[in-house]
Amino acid sequence: MSDDLEKKDADRLDELKAELSGHFGRFTRWRALCQGRGVSTVEEQIRLAEEVLAAPSTGTNAEWLTHHLRLKGSQSFDVDEMLAGADPAPGKDEA
């Protein structure tokens, strides 16, 4: 990739990060998604940032905290299975 294209992508990612930071919870959701999917390239980070910005969000503490915990390595579980007495199976990554 040319230096110009790289610079353009890096600038675009910076813009998206700023936009994500303006909506409570979305920046953490994006970081958790990047981590969960093992994303490392700028192009993939841009795509995920656009995906997170386009998705509905409640902008609540509960939603942010879920992604914050996921970023720290938490795995989800099925509450109904837990109450039914079974060992709750780890859920899929819902971030």
Binding site: A55, P56, A62, E63, L65, T66, L69, R70, S74, S76, F77, D78, V79, D80, M82, P88, G91, E94
Partner: peptide
Amino acid sequence: AFIVHNHGDPTGPEDYHVGDHL
């Protein structure tokens, strides 16, 4: 304690079955 939540686009109370340990 845990967070009980849906997994996006909930259509009813039954969709709130995902937990994350606090």
